[in-house]
Design a protein around this nucleic acid. Structure first.
Lengths: 210, 210
DNA sequence: TAAAACAAGCACGCGTGCTTGATTTTGTCC
DNA sequence: GGACAAAATCAAGCACGCGTGCTTGTTTTA
């Protein structure tokens, strides 16, 4: 079976990036050497370096790659959420799952490593800023609220920060039990806060919550 | 000036641990080599290794050291908080400052590095569990609430998780402006949520808030 | 003088960037 | 379609720097 060079090249590149993300999530930054990534991708180190001449190149590409993967994950999982009283909890749960899953785990390792690596820092800061804004915007949409209402922006930001904190907590120990309680409570608080914010600004109920 | 050996030994050890924490906060895990720490402490590598024979020993001790430092910081900064309507915000601000300062920054690097280092993991997990509980308990006291009230436990946990998320966000870019807005809003929400939780369980106002 | 604390240097393994070599695919010519 | 050369892709190995654990030597204190 003859595989065209272009496809072959793309496939190898894809495997390397997938392997890089996987290695990051499981082995952390220091453990994700070019040799380890190449082995996980099923290619030699020479082949890996053909596509990504330096470790820096590999992980700059991995930053973009994990960003796209996270966008895709978010899009796929924000369909078919409940529309009734359960919706707020489902939205909070979605955001928390986004930040406690393996993709964010890999990103988190790069986030922390970026503190002492100028090139990586630049790409991670840019990506996280974009993804943060996109996720924030999505949360607004899913919750059926908007930022013209005072306080809504901050509480949605707090929700994302809380989810990141939960992502961090999930790194070393399985935190899922504690997390479920927090999600429940946060959803209640969000409902109350968003309901009172809506009432106090006399904006008609958007209808999504009906 | 003749310095007794014991004092001298303690002083060197202290300097090394301080240097380790400082290096972690500024250079991250990979950058905090024994050589770098020794240089920051103003001693040779041989002297550093006399006190901490392996890198592992050094950072196991650093985990304990930063834990004590964080406890001390918390104790010192939880005195003289406002008692009136500003109290909740001051408590939230304290917790957020605890998690966005250099001590937690150093701890965070060890936290993340611990994912792929079994010995470090053990000490970090233990320390964070203890400190988490202590900080949680302190927050309850400072807010004048207790866990017998349904939902209070979860909301305080969420506050700590949010603070950790803010600590993470502060790693790569100065996030203080955004943070101030979140602290304000979260304090409002906390007041509302804790006030309604107190009312709904018919527990007398503790008086701290008067 | 002996012990403790501190310092300098050695040997080794590891990861990186780079070089050289091998295999596969593509394009051209007949 | 086959032969051949060039380009693309992949693989093996080299040289070097760095960090670690350890050894040997020096200085300070009791």
């Amino acid at each position: 079976m003859r595989q065209p060079q272009q496809d072959r090249s793309r496939a190898t590149r894809q495997r390397l990036l997938e392997a890089a993300i996987e290695a990051l999530a499981e082995l952390g930054w220091a453990g994700s050497t070019v040799a380890v990534v190449a082995e996980r991708a099923g290619v030699s180190r020479g082949a890996a370096q053909h596509h990504f001449p330096t470790r820096e190149d590999l992980f700059a590409a991995a930053v973009e790659f994990v960003g796209d993967a996270r966008r895709l994950w978010t899009r796929e999982h924000s369909i078919d959420l409940p529309t009734g009283p359960e919706r707020t909890r489902a939205v909070v749960d979605l955001i928390v799952r986004l930040y406690t899953g393996p993709l964010f785990r890999a990103a988190l390792h790069m986030w922390v490593a970026a503190t002492s690596d100028p090139q990586l820092r630049e790409s991670v800061v840019t990506l996280e800023a974009h993804l943060g804004r996109e996720t924030h915007k999505l949360a607004l949409e899913l919750l059926g609220v908007d930022e013209s209402t005072p306080g809504v922006r901050e509480i949605v930001q707090a929700t994302l920060d809380m989810a990141r904190g939960l992502g961090l907590a999930n790194l070393l120990t399985d935190d899922s039990k504690r997390r479920a309680g927090i999600i429940d409570r946060w959803a209640e608080i969000l409902d109350t806060a968003l309901h009172s914010a809506v009432s106090s600004s006399a904006v008609p109920n958007s209808g999504v919550r009906a």
